[in-house]
């Protein structure tokens, strides 16, 4: 029988039951302790931001807080590194367009 090779399997994690976060208006399951980026990836979402100049899709790249590629608007705050923020029950994640600060434009 082929063994599962997910990270949770590899470390023999026994997480508590999943809860949900909100991603662009729909529920996404998340495990306790998971980061937002991990929860989105596990749900098959690979991009949650567009670049400022070309509007290209971006998601997790380094996954360890160094590269700032995985930014999104979290609970209304733009430019949050989703690979560092825990996916807590009720967290609201919104796809960020460009710098995410269009509200400041004049």
């Amino acid at each position: 029988m082929r063994r599962s090779r997910t990270p949770a399997e590899l470390v023999r994690a026994e997480p508590a039951p999943a809860h949900t976060i909100d991603f662009d208006g729909r529920p996404v399951p998340a495990l306790p302790g998971q980061t937002i980026a991990a929860a989105l990836w596990a749900d098959g979402v690979l991009a949650w931001r567009t670049t400022r100049v070309g509007g290209k899709p971006r998601g997790a790249f380094c996954g360890i807080g160094a590269c700032f590629d995985c930014l999104a608007t979290v609970d209304g705050r733009p430019n949050q590194r989703t690979c560092l923020l825990p996916a807590e029950p009720g967290t609201t994640v919104t796809t960020q367009e460009g710098h995410g600060r269009a509200d400041l434009d004049v």
Binding site: R52, N79, H99, R101, A102, L104, D105, V106
Partner: peptide
Amino acid sequence: VLVTEPLPRI
């Protein structure tokens, strides 16, 4: 010099 996050032309 302090450098902020990218912003629209405020």
